[in-house]
Design a binder for these strands. Structure first.
Lengths: 249, 249
DNA sequence: AAGTGGTCTAGACCACATC
DNA sequence: ATGTGGTCTAGACCACTTC
């Protein structure tokens, strides 16, 4: 049982795509496609390298990237196995816009506020800018099927990117940042819950006191600058946070 | 500015600890300790390898592990830099017990139920066992400073581990699993919110209708078996989910 | 004993960023 | 032009698992 699988693999040495990446893509496709079934052994690295005309470190690099993704498990003395299902996607720094779009919900956005305001102490601390200095304030209502789903309030340091209201209504903030050449690196998030204030209830078509799901997030680029601070509230009957996470070995 | 830092590094070749790991630990300690300041360049890999008497791939392996942790950033043509602060810990598969202990809260646990029950359709689907088959049901109340903080309801396939009630009260479920030789691999989580039912409110010393933070989780070991399914409710005034996440490059 | 992944070496050439 | 990380090779020995 769980036999070693012989797979049709090949690499194109004239391609600019790294060899290890070509291999890892083919393996990932084979796993997704079901050619490599859960529990099956991949065959040892040396033989795999010989078959492909690659060196063992290159093959290892390909396999390692899939181990990091949670698709494969290596066991010394045993071999490399395909993980038994259930792994879909690891936790990503996703935007609500992307989440909704992936779920086929075709999200709509209504920009409520798009202005420059002085930073309060809370905002200044989160973004690492002087208190009272100018920051962009963007307040949006996210809708799906015409129903309000979330209220998003974001603060962005000035001069980072153009915050065009029309663009904010047709795409997500993260996409605009990436398009502006900002390399997102990490984020610190807090997820909680609380009762809706009357204003919040009104915005989200809920009743005052109804439970709301809350998320605060500070996002950093790869230079360590804070590029965004957000305070979001979600209707828990319409949205919840769902994700896969991997145990760091 | 941002000058290259000369660091005192050394490796012990007689140690059983891998060389790359010795190096990455020393670099991590230097970053944590402030010897390597945010933004500072690490010095090129070849020179670093020569200085330590290591090969370049070994040095790269050490650096890569810290890049994966979000502590370092590599830029082709530029060098390797220490990320500007703010990275504390990536998202881990943590238990509430560990979280509370890390916060110095000295958690207490009260086991409400520890029994074997037939699996409902929901439980069977989550754990991948036949409907109606035996599963352990563990229901616990987690307290901090004598105040209830969360209600935890877990289902565990039979014969995975000894579920001693006394042990459940003094440690966390994940610790017991690891101690039983189970290698945790991944988990699928959903975080949401809802209003407390009268029973839930009573358990957590809240009022009926009060907002509760909810979490459902299925955890898998490295063979792909589901090892635990849990349905948890938290008092949002006492607990929220806080974590750092890294953008996959 | 045999087979596996884990670690390590000493080179090489290339792509990209900066000056 | 120079220096950096990104990729790749062809070996080697070791630790662990399984039989």
């Amino acid at each position: 049982m769980d036999p070693t699988v012989t797979l049709e693999l090949s690499v194109d040495r004239s391609s600019p795509v790294p060899l290890y990446f070509q291999l890892s893509q083919q393996l990932e496709a084979a796993i997704e496609h079901g050619t490599l079934t859960p529990g099956s052994l991949l065959g040892n690295e040396i033989e795999l390298a010989a078959r492909l005309g690659l060196s063992r470190p290159t093959v290892r690099q390909a396999i390692q990237s899939l181990v990091d993704k949670g698709l494969l498990v290596r066991r010394r003395g045993v071999g490399t196995q395909v993980v038994h299902s259930q792994v879909k996607r690891p936790l990503e720094l996703s935007s609500l816009y992307d989440d909704l779009e992936a779920a086929g919900q075709r999200p709509a956005t209504k920009v409520l506020v798009n202005a420059v305001v002085p930073a309060t102490a809370e905002i200044a601390a989160a973004l690492g800018v002087p208190e009272g200095s100018d920051v962009h304030r963007v307040e949006r209502l996210r809708l799906a099927h015409g129903e309000p789903m979330a209220h998003l309030c974001n603060f962005i340091p000035p001069a980072l990117l153009d915050l065009d209201t029309a663009q904010l209504e047709t795409t997500g903030l993260y996409r605009m940042m990436r398009a502006a050449g900002i390399t997102l690196h990490s984020a610190r998030q807090t997820i909680g819950a609380r009762a809706a204030t009357p204003e919040e209830a009104d915005r989200l078509a809920e009743e005052a006191g109804a439970p709301l799901l809350t998320m605060q997030r500070v996002t950093f680029d790869d230079t360590g600058r804070a590029v965004e601070y957000g305070t979001h509230t979600y209707r828990p009957t319409r949205y919840s946070f769902e994700f896969q996470l991997l145990v760091r070995p």
